[in-house]
Design a protein around this nucleic acid. Structure first.
Length: 817
RNA sequence: GCCCGGAUGGCGGAACGGUAGACGCGGAGGACUCAAAAUCCUUUGUCCGAAAGGGCGUGCGGGUUCGAAUCCCGCUCCGGGCACCA
């Protein structure tokens, strides 16, 4: 066949045209209604992999569809170009991270273009570009001014493999580094933090208004971990001037306190340890200090090794009774007050500890009849609690807190699991933190007009645990902006999540050199109407970006009423191979370029849309290539149909309602696009293609066929842009652009069907199928049903006791058995 | 341990409480061809049956309903998140 489908040629042609003509560039004053569609900007790890292909296929579909539907669609792309791999490569090969990164960006960009995904490249941002770094640093300084960035000495997570500290969010539940897998240890270091905890309540409450996957919202809620309760003081027995403050979510159970526990690191440990217990306590504290997080957090092993008696007692303010004070490693200094009252009757950990140390148990909530468990944490009437007796849990909690507040012993309080965001990194390939240290003036911000602070290129890359900047005299030594005296620069750089916490704002106004972006312009586009990315960012990136948006809005940098950056979020499923996520580090990537060279980008895109629900994970197997080939075969079929190369087949009957079928297809694809059901949208198009194909095989041609094929091409245009653009141009003449056409509209009057299949059931079992008019009445349906010989046989002479009729598809005859 | 998902042919997957298995892959048979590829046609859950037709079928056990893959209760297995958070 001379005029076959040649994906490589047409894909090259159209990609060049979209690029050269700036087809998807959009200006900020575009009068069409704005729509901001964004895929999470990638870390440039080289050429695109199938995860990128999947992500950008979904994004590009939306960009093209919304454009055809009449929107001005903002579709930007950039690169999250700071990060460890480039620096690790530098240590290994000596190549500076910048050319290494630029080279990988070029590769990734080229494969994104070969996919046919279109962006307004004028707005491209790169985290490591000085014009972007300048504003990242500027934003840091604004946060510093209002105290949302601060520096303190803190026990931090140290990864020996990465030779840097990590944020809590980067340490996995088993105590290992999410990147290197090394066991993370604790170190006491001066570090920079963002006060994300100041926004804990807002970050929690505003989740409710977001059109996000429920599981992502749940993950964030769990991460923030809000718990309400009370703090109060326990006076040390015999020394009323010394008090221990405890936090509890169950102040209603205080009458059941039989001991109290401090974290081993608690500042009062020395104060409370009596002489005769000093040796034992000292040994315990020393042992816990040398334990890694993993060892400490394990729930394995004997409980009786996990605590020690201090020798002191504290007084329960509710009943005046003294109880012993223990240290235990299961109480954490970093949560609440680092000290607890222990109520074994209503807390299983306390129960276990009490059992191991021979401490008494007093139940203060009556467990249900027949309760066989140990600690009972449920609701029930209070017992053994004097003036709380008989109250339900909520009432007792409220009354207990009131009691504490009235006496000035304690107060109602809220605790969060969320910690402040540790942002400093002892690495080179990141955005420098723009402060200097002056012997006289302490921490001094680098003035705005001296930004960006850039790292020098002539550094040595060595895995020393400190930034290479620390050993670069030229960078390190500077003068104090305040007094002009000698000073040293901060050599730590920022976590790369800082870069990605505001890039979506920069896209709206990427060339601005007076401000990170104009708030009015940002207000025009934001919040992002559709954000698309991987589930792996459910906590880290999405929480940080929300925090930045709120903080910047409060600072007046971002629009004041912009409380959330991403109105609608879609998290695509992972692509797995052999049971694990496809990734470069696992070495199980399937390179898309081979597909671009053979079946073409359109077929690969169609495959990703067709293979299953976008939110579900997908297993790449030996059979996967067959499905990709099937998609290529389908496109070749569309090609033949649209170029008049369908061979007539003797005896094929024409289809009689092509117009109706067309409108039904439009309605269906619309619905499927709306609910992210692309796999069924593709299936509907395939089904329709088969219908039109059969029609043409019968020898039919003419306006009806042309209209059907045109509609099909319009509906496929967002999914497979190259082939549809080429076919449209061939059918409509030079200059005709399918993606400039209006999105087709389904006419409800034409989407109806004339005939329907009525099913007849006897006792819910299908016994016959009868072709009926779509507007058939109930009486007629019942007449037809009873007239059916098959139904008659199934009734076996019985008369239906009841008839359920659902026009026009169902009659159910119910007979008693 | 707690909280979310999920389980449907040989495979990926469809199915507002109303025809289970759309669409595709793979398989079988056929047309075209010297032959192959490509293309086109037919067929394809399973069991009984020559056929007509019928039985059985959505992880397991119950329930609600005229009617359940779908809703409810109780399990099993798989995936994910959180996990000494007081």
């Amino acid at each position: 066949m001379d005029d076959g489908y040649d994906p490589r040629a047409i894909e090259r042609k159209w990609q060049a045209r979209w690029r050269d003509e700036g087809t998807y560039e959009v200006d900020n004053d575009d009068p069409r209604p704005p729509f901001y569609c964004l895929c999470m900007y990638p870390y440039p790890s080289g050429a695109a992999h199938q995860g990128h292909v999947r992500n950008y296929t979904f994004g590009d579909l939306i960009v093209r569809h919304k454009t055809m539907a009449g929107h001005a669609v903002l579709s930007p792309m950039g690169f999250d170009s700071f990060g460890l791999p480039a620096e690790n490569a530098a240590i290994k090969t000596g190549v500076h991270p910048r050319p290494f990164t630029d080279d990988r960006i070029a590769q990734l960009k080229a494969s994104i273009e070969r996919l046919g995904a279109v962006y307004d490249w004028r707005r491209e941002v790169r985290s490591h570009d000085p014009s972007y770094m300048r504003w990242t640093q500027w934003i840091f300084l604004r946060l510093l001014e209002v105290g949302l960035a601060y520096r303190r000495r803190a026990p931090v997570n140290w990864c020996p493999g990465c030779q840097t500290v990590l944020a809590n969010e980067q340490v996995l539940a088993d105590g290992t580094c999410e990147r290197s897998g090394d066991v993370v240890t604790k170190r006491d270091l001066e570090q920079w933090f963002f006060r994300i905890t100041a926004y804990a309540d807002q970050l929690l409450d505003d989740l409710d208004g977001l059109d996000w996957p429920e599981r992502v919202k749940t993950m964030q809620r769990n991460w923030i971990g809000r718990s309400e309760g009370a703090e109060f003081d326990l006076a040390v027995d015999g020394r009323p001037e010394v008090t221990v403050r405890v936090f509890t979510t169950r102040p209603d159970t205080t009458f059941g306190m039989t001991y109290a526990v401090l974290a081993p690191e608690h500042p009062l440990v020395g104060e409370l340890t009596t002489a005769d217990q000093a040796e034992e306590v000292g040994a315990f504290v020393a042992r816990v200090a040398t334990e890694s997080e993993v060892e400490r957090q394990t729930t394995e092993g004997p409980v009786d090794k996990r605590g020690v008696f201090t020798g002191s007692h504290v007084v329960n303010p509710f009943n005046g009774k003294a109880v012993p004070v223990y240290l235990a490693d299961y109480v954490l200094m970093g949560y609440g007050t680092g000290a607890i009252m222990a109520v074994p009757g209503e807390d299983q950990r306390d129960w276990d500890f009490a059992a191991a140390y021979g401490l008494p148990v007093i139940r203060t909530v009556a467990p249900p009849e027949g309760w066989k468990g140990e600690a009972y944490t449920g609701d029930g009437p209070a017992i053994n609690s004097e003036w709380l007796d008989g109250l339900a849990k909520d009432e007792a909690v409220a009354k207990a807190i009131d009691w504490l507040e009235e006496r000035g012993i304690g107060r109602r309080t809220v605790n969060y699991r969320l910690r402040d965001w540790l942002l400093s990194r002892q690495r080179f390939w990141g955005c420098p933190i723009p402060v200097v240290y002056c012997p006289d003036h302490g921490v001094v911000a680098v003035p705005d007009d001296q930004l960006p602070v850039l790292a020098p290129d002539d550094v040595e890359f060595r895995p020393t645990g400190e930034s290479p900047l620390k050993s670069h005299e030229g960078f390190l030594t500077t003068t104090c902006p305040t007094c002009g005296g000698p000073a040293t620069r901060e050599t730590d750089t920022m976590d790369t999540f800082v870069d990605s916490s505001w890039y979506f704002l920069r896209f709206t106004d990427a060339a601005n050199d007076q401000a990170p972006f104009d708030p009015a312009v940002a207000a025009h586009w934001l919040p992002v109407d559709q954000y698309i990315g991987g589930i792996e960012h459910a906590i880290l990136h999405l929480m940080y970006a929300r925090f930045f948006t709120k903080a910047l809005a409060d600072l007046g940098v971002a629009p004041k009423d912009l409380r959330e950056p991403f109105a609608r979020l879609f998290t695509q499923g992972m692509i797995r191979m052999g049971g694990s996520k496809m990734s470069k580090s696992k070495g199980n990537l399937v390179d898309p370029s081979g597909y671009f060279d053979t079946v073409g980008a359109d077929a690969l895109r169609l495959f990703h849309l067709f293979v299953g629900p976008p939110a579900d994970d997908f297993d790449w197997t030996d059979q996967t290539d067959e499905i990709v080939n099937g998609c290529a075969r389908y496109l070749a079929r569309v090609w033949r149909l649209a170029t008049g190369q369908v061979t007539p087949v003797e005896g094929t009957q024409p289809v009689d309602d092509l117009v109706h079928a067309t409108h039904r297809l439009i309605a269906r694809v619309d619905d499927d696009y709306e609910r992210w059901s692309y796999n069924t949208a593709v299936a509907a198009c395939m089904e329709f293609t088969n219908l039109v194909y059969r029609h043409v095989q019968s020898g039919a041609s003419g306006l009806e066929v042309d209209a059907a094929v045109d509609s099909l091409l319009l509906l496929l245009a967002p999914m497979t842009p190259h082939i549809t653009a080429e076919l449209w141009e061939r059918r409509k003449g030079d200059g005709a652009l399918v993606h400039a056409e209006a999105w087709p509209e389904a006419d409800p009057a034409l989407a109806v069907v004339a005939r329907e299949t009525m099913i007849v059931q006897v006792n819910g079992k299908v016994r016959d199928r009868i072709d009926v008019a779509a507007d058939v009445g109930e009486a007629e349906m019942q007449r037809l049903a009873l007239a059916s010989p098959r139904v008659e046989a199934a009734l076996e002479g019985r008369t239906p006791a009841r008839v359920v009729t659902r026009p026009p598809n169902l009659v159910n005859l119910v007979v008693t058995r």
